[in-house]
Each structure stands twice: as structure tokens, then as C-alpha cells.
Design a binder for these strands. Structure first.
Lengths: 225, 225
DNA sequence: AACGTTATGTTTGGATCCAAAGTAGAGCTT
DNA sequence: AAGCTCTACTTTGGATCCAAACATAACGTT
């Protein structure tokens, strides 16, 4: 995939994620190509990719439309990530944690501890957490013995609200986010503990529950969602 | 997607599934287009779709190659389908089975009973089972309240060995397959039973186990795999 | 006046052309 | 002889052209 081609896909992905197009809106190839300043060809290619990612949908026989997502879809996507990451964790626990992998996980656990040690959250900490969180999840998923689980998760994560690093949204209320991250850190540590003891079922369930943190834990701290 | 476009994707999917190309083999756009008797354009479009489906992989900076799957990948893909269908079943049990849905499931259960009632399997029964099995699974997955789970399963099923209807392979040994389908039928009935009683965890685990039937149950009947 | 048919315009799909990037091979230099 | 460089060829990506399908609107007929 050339630079431009990739950039058309990701630019469109970004535009859709930002809500630049109305859900259900039909996307014409010419309109989009003019908007992005390229010819129809890369747009046609991008549409096929985005269709597979689930962001676009066939609009009858005539082109594509922006897919709309309901509340239920969001919940489902998070649950899907939960069960898939849970599966990865269980397999990892069952096959046993190699010393190298153990050390690798410990790194991200340790970074999390350090980040939260000072007792509060700064603006720039958000990115640091997002990064270490991504690494933690990728390490577990990537070590499950086959790329198949990771691929399934990656495809699910194309739904913008489903990805694991969409936890922190509200950088205005850093004190509430701090408590959320504290809980996430505990969950990370418990997962590693379970993995070390070969507790497959426990690792799976912890990982599943962990998926909900970006979704329902707000209620715990007096938030809306 | 036009007829030809769709047909290029599915024709390629079929060719790859049949092993017409070696795993790891690079696919040139011109070579494939000549082989299929179309121009490069539909092939380029199809490659993007097949890449997202996981059948093709980027080969460095130069085009695509046929993805190769290991034993572990096959196992993983089956497990992925298991946890996803398990998730769908659990959600269904938790939200309660509507009378209409109950009746719909009963239809496929009944058809399964009828098929197996005569005590043995004929050649043509295989397709009948495949059909009712597909309907049964689709009904459960499609009723989980959001298309997200179904999409994830559909994407996973693009790996030819992962789909639920790849159960019956050996139409030479119909007596052994009969016993397998008998077991599958029991599992279907147990799933419906659990759904009716709102037993989410049980429905989930039954569905998960059911996924393995095409994979590991052969050993029970003195087969290889 | 309503329905059906036709004609025009819009949009997508397929083919081809051109440019750019990459690879391999040959020739030259050290 | 080995390594580097330059060149020629292969292959992909982007743009454009043409045809086919679909939708819409207008016109004619009943």
C-alpha cells in the first residue's frame, strides 16, 4: 500500500470517526475524491478496506454509506474485545508464562506504578498511560501463539469506540480519571498475577471485566456513562 | 459491488481455499488478472478486500502474498469463533428468549431430530445438516441485539477452516459422521435449553465447547484429528 | 388524472495509460 | 575477484476514459 493509498484510508477513517459525515450518509466516490484531492481510484480502494473494517456499509446497489452505531453496538464491541482479550489471556495462562514474557509484562506494570505513584494525574500523563496500556494489551494478545486473535481484535478496534486506548476521554476531570486508572492498574496487576499462577479462567475473567473500564466505570465515580 | 467484482473476490477466495496458490506465494496483479480474464482494476479491489479478510498479507512493499496458516492458527480461529458465539448466546440468555425466537430455534432443532431419526446418514443428508446448522448458528448470532458480534464472526469465518459449516469433511465414513452429528444435535438442544432458562454462563460454555466439534471430536471416534 | 414507458443524467465498475518506486542484473572500479 | 553503481525491467499506484446500471423526470397513453 503506497503512502497516498494508506493516507486515504486513514484520512477517511479519521473523518468518519470525527463525525464529518452523518451516519447513514451516502458517500459518492467523486465527492470524496475531490474533497481529498485525489482521483477516484485510491478512493475506490479505500472504500473496500473501510467496508471490511465495518465503518462503511453498502447502500443498496449504489455505493457506500457511513455506518451508524447504536448504544448497543458500542457495548457489544467492548464485550467482543473483552472476550477476545480474555481468550488470549487464558491461552497464555494455560501455555505458561515464559521468563522473558514475564519480564516484559513487569515492565509495563512497573511503568504504571510509577505513573500513578505521585498520587495525581497531569495532562501529559494521559498519553503515557495510553502508550503503556497499549503495550500491555498488545503483549498479551501478541503472545497467545497465533496472530488470529490479534487480527480479530484489530478488526474490532477499527470501530473507534472499541479500542482499548479509548479509555481516557475527559482530560478536564483528571482527578476522576486518576481513580479510573488506579483501578485499571490493579486489574493489570491481577491479570499478570493470574497469568503467573497459570490460572486460566481467572485471567480470562479479569481481562473481560477490564474491558468494561472505559464504559461503565464512570458511574462509580459519579459520571454519566 | 458489481457481479464481476464480487465474483473476483469469491473466485479468489475459493482458489486460495483450495490451495491453488502456495502459502507464502506472491500474487502479482497482472498474473491474477490474466488468469481470471479481467483487467487489473477489479483484482486490485479484490486484493484489498482479501487483505482485510486475512487471506492475503502484504509482501513487504511489493504487493500481496497468500497468508499461510499453522496448526495453531486453525485452533485459534476455532476458539475465536467459540468465544464469540458463546458471547452471543450468553447475551441472548441474559436478555431473555422471545416466543418468536424460541419458535424459530425450535424449527432447526426439530429438523435436526428428523434428519437423525432414521439412525444413519446418507450422502445428501450432509448438505441438509450443513444448512440447518448454519441457520441455527445464524439465528443465535443474529439475535444478540447488535450486528457487531455477527460481523466479527463473519470476518473470522473468512478463514476457510474456521466456519461452523466446515464440520463434515469425510463423506466416505458416514457412520462416524453420524455419531458426530448426533453429538452436535445434543449440543444444539442443550444450548436452546439453557437459553430458555436464562442460563447465560451455561449457554456460553456449551456454545464454546460446541465450536470444537469439527476439530477435536474426531479422536473420540477413532479418527486422526 | 394516473400509470406506464422512455429518455436523460448521475454514478459506479472495468480497462487502459502513465508515472513512480523497486528489483535485479550487468558492467565498471578498486 | 569482490563490491559498488548505474541502468534496464518489472510491478504497483494514480488518473482518465468508456460502458453499463440505476435513478429520476418528463412525456405520452389510456
Amino acid at each position: 500500500m503506497s503512502n497516498s493509498d494508506k493516507s486515504v484510508v486513514s484520512r477517511l477513517r479519521k473523518l468518519i470517526g470525527e463525525g464529518a459525515y452523518q451516519p447513514g450518509e451516502r458517500l459518492g466516490e467523486v465527492a470524496v475524491s475531490e474533497q481529498l484531492g485525489v482521483s477516484r481510484t485510491p478512493v475506490r480502494l479505500a472504500f473496500r478496506t473501510l467496508e471490511q473494517e465495518g465503518l462503511l456499509q453498502r447502500a443498496g446497489k449504489r455505493g457506500f454509506m457511513v455506518r451508524e452505531f447504536t448504544e448497543a453496538d458500542v457495548l457489544c464491541a467492548v464485550e467482543v474485545r473483552g472476550v477476545l482479550e480474555g481468550l488470549a489471556a487464558r491461552r497464555l495462562a494455560e501455555q505458561g508464562l515464559s521468563p522473558a514474557l514475564d519480564a516484559k509484562l513487569e515492565v509495563w506494570i512497573q511503568k504504571g506504578r510509577e505513573l500513578l505513584a505521585k498520587g495525581y494525574l497531569e495532562e501529559r500523563d494521559v498519553d503515557v498511560w495510553s502508550e503503556l496500556n497499549r503495550h500491555f494489551h498488545e503483549t498479551i494478545v501478541g503472545s497467545s501463539g497465533s496472530p488470529v486473535i490479534g487480527d480479530a481484535i484489530a478488526r474490532n478496534n477499527h470501530l473507534p469506540f472499541a479500542a482499548a486506548d479509548s479509555i481516557v476521554i475527559d482530560s478536564e476531570a483528571l482527578d476522576r480519571e486518576y481513580r479510573k486508572l488506579q483501578l485499571a492498574q490493579v486489574q493489570h496487576e491481577l491479570v499478570v498475577q493470574a497469568l503467573r499462577h497459570g490460572e486460566g479462567a481467572r485471567a480470562e475473567m479479569l481481562m473481560r471485566e477490564h474491558a468494561f473500564i472505559g464504559l461503565r466505570y464512570g458511574e462509580l465515580f459519579g459520571l454519566g456513562g
